[in-house]
């Protein structure tokens, strides 16, 4: 196998005496969709925070595409191509949908210390924003104020924003949370399309979606990775069942 896109080595994070990430080591291979599953409170979101740079780690090393990014900030990591979405929708509510995405494209396209030219007229930014909106199916809504979108649309917008940063690795924190059945189906189809274009780390509670989409799955329990493998291996693992599902007698 080629060298991993992301290599995580003995990552640790605790809040006071509560250990949330306990010696987490993981590798994410280029092109794979790697799902993180585990019960509530297992530390999945904390791990996403650590990988994205939202939280600094107490100990351990994160190597992205061969470079050590452990001490880089969230913004610096994004500029290297490591984008994230949030479990709780995080958008710019007073911006239009298009502007939400265009400003993300702007972050990748030259300096933003430009004070005179109207940014709304920058065709290159608007085009790449329209492109990202088309990929998630939000083109029709581009002129709407983002705050007035429906919940499901906001989740899609959040994906479009992440895509507009031209990521090589996408960290998605429960992209399906709060979606209706139809919306969920559409979003899963979207993720399936995306996984052929960009490497994805997916935290998700919808097990059907996870087992359907993932190339590999890591199971997190109490801040520890207790197993990593293909969906088939994970489904067949008695160890995982015992720890995760509380199923004492798996067979």
């Amino acid at each position: 196998m080629s060298s991993p896109l992301l290599a995580v080595d003995s990552l640790r994070k605790s809040f006071g005496t509560l250990v949330v990430s306990d010696d987490v080591s993981l590798t994410i291979e280029p092109g794979e969709l790697h799902a993180l599953i585990g019960p509530n409170g297992a530390g999945k979101t904390t791990l996403i925070h650590q990988l994205s740079g939202t939280l600094t780690s107490d100990h351990g090393r994160i190597v992205f595409d061969g470079g050590d990014i452990t001490s880089l900030s969230l913004a610096q990591r994004v500029r290297l191509g490591l984008a994230r979405s949030f479990q709780i929708t995080s958008i710019l509510p007073d911006f239009t949908v298009l502007e939400n995405v265009a400003v993300a494209a702007q972050a990748r396209a030259g300096s933003s210390f430009r004070f005179f030219a109207p940014v709304g007229d920058e065709a290159a930014l608007n085009e790449s924003a329209h492109g990202a909106l088309a990929r998630v199916g939000l083109s029709e809504r581009s002129a709407v104020r983002a705050g007035s979108l429906a919940h499901g649309e906001k989740r899609l917008l959040e994906l479009a924003i992440a895509l507009a940063t031209a990521p090589r690795l996408l960290l998605l924190d429960e992209p399906l949370a709060g979606l209706g059945q139809e919306e969920s189906k559409a979003a899963i189809a979207l993720l399936r399309r995306l996984k052929s274009e960009v490497t994805i780390v997916l935290v998700e509670h919808d097990m059907d979606a996870v087992f359907d989409l993932a190339d590999r799955i890591s199971v997190l329990v109490n801040g520890r990775v207790i197993a990593t493998g293909t969906p088939r291996e994970i489904r067949g693992s008695a160890h995982v069942r015992a720890a995760y599902l509380g199923d004492e007698v798996p067979l």
Binding site: T54, A75, V78, S90, V103, T165
Partner: peptide
């Protein structure tokens, strides 16, 4: 509007 969102697209 949202400083965390701006960090998460690459702006300090």
């Amino acid at each position: 509007e949202n400083p965390v969102r701006m960090r998460a697209i690459g702006f300090e």
